[in-house]
Amino acid sequence: MKIGLFIPCYVDALYPQVGVATYKLLKSLGLDVDYPEKQTCCGQPMGNAGFQNMADELVENYDKLFKDFDYVVAPSASCAAYVKLFHPNIVNHECKAAQKTMDVVEFLHDVLQIKSLPSKFPHKVSIHNSCHGVRELHLSSPSELNIPRFSKIKDLLQLVEGITILEPERVDECCGFGGMFSIEEPAVSVRMGTDKLNRHLATGAEYITGPDSSCLMHMQAIAKHQNYPIQFIHVVEILAAGL
């Protein structure tokens, strides 16, 4: 199975260790993983700001780079969701690569269906169920819907030895990042982030973990500003811990 690794721009620049962990994990599972170097961004920052038409070339480029892989895997739920759900509308045609794009959690859980991992992480973590992960990719059951409860993130983390998994009250309320929203409505965004952080802290967790580094980045920036005693780690880093 040929896997194309998509490392979205901000992960590339700010959290390369998340990309490295994804690569290591996929390789350890015996997959053929490649990273096309000409990749940049999924286009979501422009789209959410109201300029998706500026992203058309990006989308075509993405499709060209990734269309021949069996799956495209990204360690970022929001970007994977954007590619999957928005790319075809931006360019008004089917996108092969978009159809094959998955968030890494989804991929490990649904495609590989992994049942064991060699990793250890003897810490208390609070899961951050990011909006697009929950409501666009259904990585967990959205709290608003009356459907059977599930969490693919929890299922995977449970394979890690020594981990204590917690979740905050208001389990999938938005943290207030929202891309351009965070700088256009800074007061609301910071307030939402602070409220969310406090609920994560109340679980007694040492780490906040989630499938979206963007939400983690936003909360981390607030936590740092307020000297909150909490650390941040992407789900895939925990799954790859010890590799």
Partner: peptide, 29 residues
């Protein structure tokens, strides 16, 4: 200028991006 800094610290850029690590062969299984 646009408000990220209100109540938030700036994100820290990694010394080497994933791109660079990859190019230098530092991303290993």
């Amino acid at each position: 200028l646009n408000g990220w800094a209100q109540g938030r610290e700036m994100p820290v850029f990694a010394k080497q991006s994933f791109h660079e690590l990859w190019k230098k062969g530092k991303v290993k299984a």
